[in-house]
C-alpha cells in the first residue's frame, strides 16, 4: 500500500468520524437545551426530528408538483420551515403537557413517551407507514474528490455545515442574547430569577419550543443522509440522551466534547468490528465511564 492510499484511508475514516460527530451533535443540541438546561426528559425528541424531516419531504413534494424550477433552491427555505413547524408543535406540547409536570421529572418521561407514541401514529396515519425521502437538489448529491481516490460525500459535508451553523447560533443565543440570559438565570436559581422580574414560565415555554425547533432542523438535515419513516425518530432517542448525559447535562461544551468522543470511538471501532459490535462497545464504554463519573465529562459548577 502506497503512502497516498494510506492517507486516503485515514482521511476518509477521519471524515466518517467527523460526519458521525456532527450527526450526534445535531441530535444532542436540542436535547442539551431541553434536558440539560430545563431538566425535562423529552422522550418525544426523536419525533420532533421526524416532524422536521417530514416538513422537508412535504416541501420537496410541493416544489416538484407546482414549480419544478424551484427544486434546486427549496432546501434552505424548507429547513427554516422545519424549524418553525417543530417550534410550533413544541410550544403546543409545552402548553398542553409539559408545564404541568415540571415538578415530577420521572412522570414527564412517561408522558412524553406517550406523546411520542401518539405522534408516531399521527405520522403513520398522515404519511403512510412506508419510509419516504425528499427529492434532493442536485448540488447535494455526489461527492467531492480533492485528490485522486479520495471521495468525500457532499451530504456529509452539508450536515457538518448545518451543525456548525446551528451550534454557533445556539452559543450566540445562549451567551449573547436576552433569552439566553433568562434561561441561564432560570437554570441557576428559579426563585431568584422570578424575583428579578423574569417570567420563568414564558422562558420555559420558549426554551422548550426552541429545543424542539433545533430538533426539527436536525431531522431536516438527516433527510440528506437517510429516508424518513414514522418510527425513525425512536432510533435516535437513546443516543441523543447518552450524548447529553455523557457530556454533563448542564454543559453545552460537554455535549460537543461527548459527541466528538462517542463518534470517534464508534467510527474507529467500526473499522475493526462489525457495526453492531462497535455499537455495543461504544455504548458499554459510555455506560462504564458514566458509572465511574455520573456527573458526566463536564460537571456543572452550579450547586443544587
Amino acid at each position: 500500500m502506497s503512502p497516498s492510499e494510506l492517507f486516503n484511508i485515514v482521511a476518509m475514516q477521519g471524515f466518517a468520524g467527523l460526519s458521525l460527530f456532527s450527526v450526534l451533535l445535531l441530535m444532542g443540541l436540542g436535547l442539551a437545551i431541553i434536558f440539560g438546561q430545563m431538566g425535562v426528559i423529552n422522550m418525544a425528541h426523536g419525533e420532533f426530528m421526524t416532524i422536521g424531516a417530514y416538513t422537508i419531504y412535504l416541501c420537496s413534494h410541493l416544489a416538484e408538483t407546482f414549480s419544478p424550477g424551484l427544486v434546486p433552491y427549496y432546501f434552505p427555505l424548507a429547513i427554516l420551515l422545519a424549524f418553525v413547524a417543530a417550534f410550533a408543535f413544541g410550544w403546543l406540547a409545552e402548553w398542553l403537557l409539559i408545564r404541568h409536570l415540571y415538578k415530577r421529572p420521572l412522570d414527564t418521561l412517561l408522558a412524553t413517551w406517550g406523546l411520542s407514541l401518539g405522534m408516531q401514529q399521527g405520522f403513520r396515519s398522515t404519511f403512510g407507514p412506508k419510509e419516504v425521502s425528499p427529492t434532493l437538489p442536485d448540488w447535494l448529491l455526489g461527492s467531492w474528490s480533492p485528490t485522486d481516490g479520495l471521495d468525500i460525500p457532499i451530504n456529509g459535508l452539508f450536515v457538518m455545515v448545518i451543525t456548525l451553523a446551528v451550534c454557533a447560533l445556539v452559543f450566540l443565543a445562549m451567551f449573547r442574547s436576552r433569552w439566553g440570559l433568562r434561561v441561564r438565570a432560570t437554570v441557576a436559581n428559579r426563585a431568584m430569577a422570578n424575583a428579578t422580574g423574569i417570567d420563568t414560565r414564558r422562558t420555559d415555554r420558549l426554551t422548550y419550543a426552541i429545543g424542539c425547533g433545533i430538533a426539527g432542523i436536525a431531522g431536516a438535515a438527516f433527510t440528506t443522509i437517510g429516508s424518513t419513516g414514522p418510527t425513525s425518530g425512536s432510533l435516535y432517542i437513546v443516543d441523543a440522551f447518552l450524548v447529553v448525559t455523557f457530556g454533563g447535562a448542564a454543559s453545552l461544551l460537554g455535549t460537543i466534547a461527548s459527541a466528538f468522543s462517542i463518534a470517534q470511538v464508534q467510527s474507529i471501532s467500526e473499522f475493526f468490528l462489525t457495526g453492531s459490535m462497535a455499537k455495543v462497545l461504544t455504548l458499554s464504554m459510555i455506560l462504564v465511564i458514566l458509572m465511574m463519573r455520573p456527573q458526566g465529562l463536564f460537571a456543572s459548577k452550579v450547586r443544587r
Binding site: G39, L109, S284, I286, L287, P294
Partner: peptide
Amino acid sequence: RRVSGVYFAIMTQAVALI
C-alpha cells in the same frame, strides 16, 4: 455513586439497548 432518578432511568435504558 448516588446515581438516581432520571440518570438511573437513562442508564438502564442504555443497558436495554446494549
